[in-house]
Amino acid sequence: MASIVAHSLTRLYGSNKAVDALSFEVASGTVLGFLGPNGAGKSTTMRMLTGFLRPSAGRAVINGHNLETDALAARQALGYLPEGAPMYPEMGVGEFLTFIGEIRGLRGHQLTAALERVVSQLDLGAVMDQSIGTLSKGFGRRVGIAQAMIHDPDVLILDEPTDGLDPTQKIQVRQLIQAMSKDKIIVISTHILEEVEILCNRIMVIAQGQLKLDDTPDGVRRLSRYANAVSLVVDEPQAAASKLSTLAEIAHVEVRRGRITAFPRESEAIGPAVYALAQRERWSISEFHLESGRLDDVFAQITGATPDEH
């Protein structure tokens, strides 16, 4: 059973706390989206979870193996795609994947089968004889993912796995991650909130090295001021907005570019009340949308960053 336990993980750079007493546990079947603004401590945390950096305090345990005292077993249980997918540019793709497979203990038929699997899953057949340094960014990233999953690890830690991929390749990699997620732990660091919404069943937001939020995507969306808000487009938006603001269930109303957004008090469902008012007033409605909440809005609230900054 796959597991990650981080216990009071702390990392100091001089007097600066890059990661400050981070504690969490992750169980099998979780796709964890690791979010935070630049410099929040995401990559540092990932590096401590993979053993590349030693925590200043605390400990990380992978599948029951402490990364300090039982590092090799812990590293064998995980696959890691570092930020920027660094590899050896002079090596051929096939040669590189074979080397990683062998170092991870695969031999003979097992190695051949593992190579065939990752080449097929990541569509690498055309570049197997090409040297890594000549690959496009998209192929380079896919080779990076292939080396991380060649030994079919219980825990996959992927730092920006779809960076540099074209839309079709992004869909392909996302489908692959979803297909693998049933009995594994997959930790993804990304700036793309859309990706988190599609892939993840758990979200952690980190800022200034501290855990600010840990919840399901639905739970995070409920924290948004847009949760249960109603947005609509009508013929006379200003007049409609005035009427809407008189409803007791509505906290306030905004009008932007002809679109009205009504925000509820206490995140109550206000759809029926707004719709009833629209019917009574005989508004001509061209759009009516019930909002479930927005991750970018919560992200901005928690980190102090505007959604565009990430």
Partner: peptide
């Protein structure tokens, strides 16, 4: 410099 140390030193080798 290239960052490949991060790959190499997180493999199951001492």
């Amino acid at each position: 410099r290239s960052g490949s140390a991060e790959l190499l030193l997180t493999l199951p080798v001492t």
